[in-house]
Simulated assay, not measured.
Amino acid sequence: MIPWQQRLSTGTEDIQDEVIHWYQQTRHGKAYVPEMIWGTLQTEAYASVILRKVVEFLGVPNDVSAGVAKRMERQQVLYDGEHHYEVILGEQALYTNVGGPVVMRGQMERLLREIDLPSLSLGVLPAAAEVGVIPMPGFSMYDGGRVHYELVSSGVDITDVDELALHDKAFDALSSTASYGEAASSLISKALAFWSAVDEL
């Protein structure tokens, strides 16, 4: 494992380039993101807050604008007709305050616009849902036999075949309980109403 401070020693742009490569090479990816919005669906405003927090927390060079631009470039995989992603957001991800009500409202609006993209199967795991696996941190699954976790101090890759199979099993369990289609849109719309009401206070 290489610590984030070392990997981000030149700022956030280079590692965003690396992530773009992962996504371009992955024709069918999966992601479980329990507490924040999946990076490939983040608005520019939301991504700016996230990367600014990374820079401040780790004390790495501040190139937030360049890093955000690369994150926005990554999102082209949603529109090129060559990729498909199965994504499960925890309902908490819709309420974790990233940047305040205006940013969160814009993010909910984007989720509602994009939820029917042909390249995307977007589910929301209700907060009170009973899931057939123990609670776990978020993870991403890429083509080529790789699961990636992002921890506080570093990122971890898993490539062992048996461990990959367990992650597939875990994702299936989460997916079987998540809400999709109109039910997912309803949960996102509820969050949008929440952030709209907060904005008016």
Rank of each mutant, 00 (worst) to 15 (best):
Y46I: 05
A47C: 12
A47N: 04
A47V: 04
A47R: 05
I50K: 03
L51R: 06
L51P: 00
R52T: 15
V54T: 13
V55E: 01
V55N: 03
V55I: 11
P61N: 11
N62W: 06
D63T: 02
D63E: 02
D63H: 04
V64H: 05
S65I: 13
S65Y: 10
S65A: 15
V68I: 04
A69Q: 14
R71S: 12
M72V: 14
M72S: 06
E73T: 13
E73K: 15
E73N: 13
L78T: 04
Y79V: 05
D80V: 09
H83Y: 01
Y85V: 07
I88K: 01
G90T: 07
G90V: 06
A93C: 03
L94W: 02
L94V: 05
L94T: 03
Y95I: 06
N97L: 09
V98F: 07
G100I: 09
G100W: 03
V102Q: 14
V103P: 04
M104K: 10
M104H: 09
R105E: 13
R105F: 00
M108Q: 12
E109G: 10
L111N: 05
L112N: 08
R113S: 12
R113F: 01
E114P: 00
D116I: 02
D116F: 01
L117T: 04
P118Q: 08
P118G: 07
P118W: 06
L120G: 00
L120V: 03
L122N: 02
G123R: 11
L125K: 09
A127L: 11
E130N: 11
E130A: 14
E130K: 14
V133D: 03
P135F: 11
M136D: 07
M136E: 14
P137K: 01
G138E: 04
G138S: 12
G138N: 11
F139S: 00
S140C: 09
M141F: 08
M141T: 10
Y142C: 02
V147K: 03
Y149G: 00
Y149C: 00
Y149D: 00
E150C: 02
E150V: 02
S154P: 02
V156G: 01
I158R: 07
I158K: 05
T159C: 08
D160Q: 14
D160L: 07
D160W: 01
D162T: 13
D162G: 06
L164Q: 03
A165M: 10
A165W: 06
L166G: 08
L166R: 15
H167Y: 15
D168A: 06
D168H: 15
